[in-house]
Nucleic acid binder design. Structure first.
Lengths: 269, 269
DNA sequence: TAGACCGGTTTCAATTATTAGAACAGTGTT
DNA sequence: AACACTGTTCTAATAATTGAAACCGGTCTA
């Protein structure tokens, strides 16, 4: 079988050999990329570890009910992992509260909606609802990340964290790697970012104008669930520019706010 | 803090001490039960392992991006785990096909819907959709399991696997533990089970008459997606008996079939 | 203010499980 | 029948895990 080599780079440091538990967990992470399963040999190659070691790692994972072995003896992530993750996920307080809102917004506008929080300099997606009539498949994954500066939700949340030019400068200077240009519209300078964040504070919402992915626009509204000054997270409506133009997205702000208010009350600026 | 001791029994064999990778994975599994996080000491107690060993295990898990440490230094499952599980889950072929059907059924009947497959003698829930107006919270979790003989989906799937009395006998005899009575209506004898499965084969659907949980009824329809003779899985509509009586559930069969046909075509007997 | 206590973290010699190469055992293909 | 391909088991040498105890930074209490 062909295996994409570049897939590995992120997961395994080819330099130093893994040992013990680290190898077990690297194996687990690696298996996530192969929904149809993968053989021991390929796995060992990818981890550049001896087959017998990987074999024992797989044994531990199977004992813990995290992976399974198909009839054709390929290894896959197992249902135990799904149960672990989903039972944890369903217990997250925020998610239960927010998901009905996302569903309502997705239904109303016919577009994919997200809820994301800020973690250091990145946004983490904690919920995602696709409308019933979704023809497109967004690349976002629950638990997945994006840089804050080039996403709608990210800017919506940064706006209330980087309130003056000084902090924006610090953010940009210490950002590692430096603000990368994803598209023609990506904001890459402290000056522009500060201006953008100020405007977001004024409006109470943020717009991603194809700054992260070409052809993808996004409207994001920060939510103040537990604090009046710092938002806990932000909801977003993500739309394909071609089908749902930017102007229409910006005109939808009040309608979206109404939906949110209906479910959560006064949680917006 | 108070920690439920019985929670552990399933996860950790108190007898023999864990070592290395096994302890790391036991830690991971254990953390799933504490969405608000848990401290190192409690964790070590539950795993009855030395704190330093658990500490190193946690280090490995953090390196693998599977857990995180809160401000107050409690350990939680991390977003990396969510990403791992969800990216795998979203890639599962069946799920993508089935979920629209579940959503449509949930919407139509206002009840929770499931899709489950058979794994040895248990059913595994692979998808779950709650209606927008869901007041009740079902206990089922994606990746979770139930015995087949006392659930609607389980019986719907067994029906096409245990086609003669001989196989039903074998199933019942080798079932470990023996067929346990969950409620007054649970089927616990081979004779009754055979009769029930025969009836299911005739009808093309199964009904769980409060056999698994008191007060919970269920209508299940097996789906023949890849084979004409053996169903791949079954969808179910789970209803609280009080609000949605059994008769109404049985009368809904044709309507449910129409919804399924609409989305998937001819996949039913 | 001292001091006891709680948490997480680090240390270190003894131990023991991991390591990795190689042999083994099945399958399906040529 | 030989081959190439799996996953699996075996083994002595090695290196990582082990776990008691010490440590450190807090917070509560006397």
């Amino acid at each position: 079988m062909m295996v994409k080599k570049d897939h590995v780079a992120d997961l395994v440091d080819d330099e130093k050999a893994l040992n013990g538990a680290d190898r077990v967990l690297a194996t687990l992470n690696l298996l996530g990329g192969f929904p149809d399963g993968i053989g021991l040999n390929d796995l060992a190659r990818l981890l550049n570890s001896p087959r017998s070691s990987v074999h024992r790692a797989l044994g531990a994972l199977r004992r813990a009910d995290l992976i399974e072995q198909d009839k054709d003896s390929r290894y896959r992530l197992g249902y135990g992992l799904l149960k672990l993750a989903f039972s944890y996920y369903e217990e997250l307080d925020e998610v239960g509260r927010i998901r009905p809102v996302l569903a309502a917004l997705a239904e109303r506008f016919g577009e994919t909606t997200h809820y994301a929080i800020l973690d250091r300099s990145e946004v983490v997606y904690l919920a995602k609802v696709q409308p019933a009539t979704s023809r497109y498949q967004m690349t976002s994954v629950i638990g997945g990340r994006n840089p804050a500066y080039c996403t709608g939700v990210g800017k919506a949340l940064l706006a209330y964290l980087l309130k003056d030019e000084q902090r924006v400068d610090d953010y940009v200077d210490t950002h590692e790697p430096p603000l990368v240009r994803h598209t023609d519209h990506t904001i890459t300078t402290a000056k522009k970012l500060h201006k953008e964040l100020a405007s977001i504070r004024d409006d109470g919402y943020a717009v991603d104008r194809e700054e992260n992915e070409p052809g993808i626009n996004c409207l994001a509204i920060p939510l103040f669930l537990t604090s009046k000054s710092v938002p806990d997270g932000a909801v977003s409506i993500t739309a394909v520019a071609q089908r749902f133009p930017l102007e229409r997205l910006e005109k939808s702000v009040e309608e979206a706010r109404d939906v949110i208010r209906e479910h959560l009350g006064e949680v917006m600026k």
